[in-house]
Computed example of a mutant assay.
Amino acid sequence: MKAVLIFLILGVCGTGLTGAAEAFEKDVVKTTAGDLEITFIGHGSLMFKFGNKVIHVDPYSKLADYAKLPKADLIFLTHEHQDHLDPVALQQLTTAKTTVVLTEKFAEKVPGGIIMRNGDTRDVGGIAVEAVPAYNIMHKRDTGQPFHPKGTGNGYVLTFADKRLYIAGDTENIPEMGLLKRIDIAFLPMNLPYTMTPEMVADAARSFKPKVLYPYHYGEADPARLVALLKGNPEIEVRIRRMK
């Protein structure tokens, strides 16, 4: 039976916690071009190190003192909500050499960034990037407006040598997920009412079958429920990290 915490899969091995000053969990993914280090900051915030590059995703200053973390070569922003677009974190991470990738919806808030629309593909700093849709179908505000309208947010597929990572952003189990191919690692959100239930995450994972699935941005949802739902899908390894 597959365990929740897998210590060796796809060349992914847990490295536990960092020093006391930064109690963030880390995993290391073996690629054909060297190690990809994943740091789980929390919520929707991730940090990757690959080669000589540092990559941040949706940095949020309520989770960490970003002034003490490595400066960013690349920053990916999924949408404009304050826990994903945080000016304080951006200021602490950005240098004159930092490239920010973002959506057209809020480009005016971060001048000089690279705009990617749903469906765009391009090379960013030597990394192949695909911008994919991220939106709500079921979950809406009292006004009837989806929490995340279609076309305003991005998920990203990032290719690191032979490994493809899908960072879904704030989204539900949308039909476009079924078009994803060869995803080695996926980060899928699981917080209500803004994104998905564990059942929706399980449905999404079954649609494109990532080899490793990290639920992230999961709020009060119980990750153990997702593990149970995917028990009958041994091709999908579920790894739980502190990403509440």
Results as ranks from 00 to 15, higher is better:
224 A>Y: 15
216 Y>H: 15
66 Y>N: 02
157 V>G: 04
124 V>G: 00
219 G>P: 10
12 V>Q: 12
11 G>H: 02
205 A>G: 09
78 T>M: 10
84 H>Y: 14
220 E>W: 14
12 V>M: 15
164 R>Q: 10
229 L>C: 11
56 H>Q: 06
184 D>L: 11
140 K>L: 05
10 L>K: 10
46 L>Y: 08
241 R>H: 06
168 A>S: 13
92 Q>D: 14
59 P>M: 06
233 N>A: 13
41 I>D: 08
199 E>T: 12
96 A>H: 12
184 D>S: 04
50 F>I: 00
167 I>L: 11
90 L>G: 08
226 L>V: 05
87 P>G: 02
128 A>I: 02
196 M>L: 03
201 V>A: 07
94 T>C: 08
243 M>D: 04
201 V>F: 09
135 Y>F: 15
137 I>W: 11
236 I>M: 03
43 H>G: 02
56 H>R: 01
80 E>I: 10
185 I>Y: 10
66 Y>K: 08
9 I>P: 12
166 Y>A: 11
18 T>K: 06
199 E>H: 12
9 I>T: 13
178 G>Q: 04
114 I>H: 03
73 D>C: 06
124 V>A: 00
203 D>P: 07
207 S>C: 10
36 L>I: 03
54 V>Q: 01
14 G>C: 07
35 D>H: 12
185 I>F: 06
69 L>H: 03
160 F>K: 09
241 R>C: 05
178 G>Y: 05
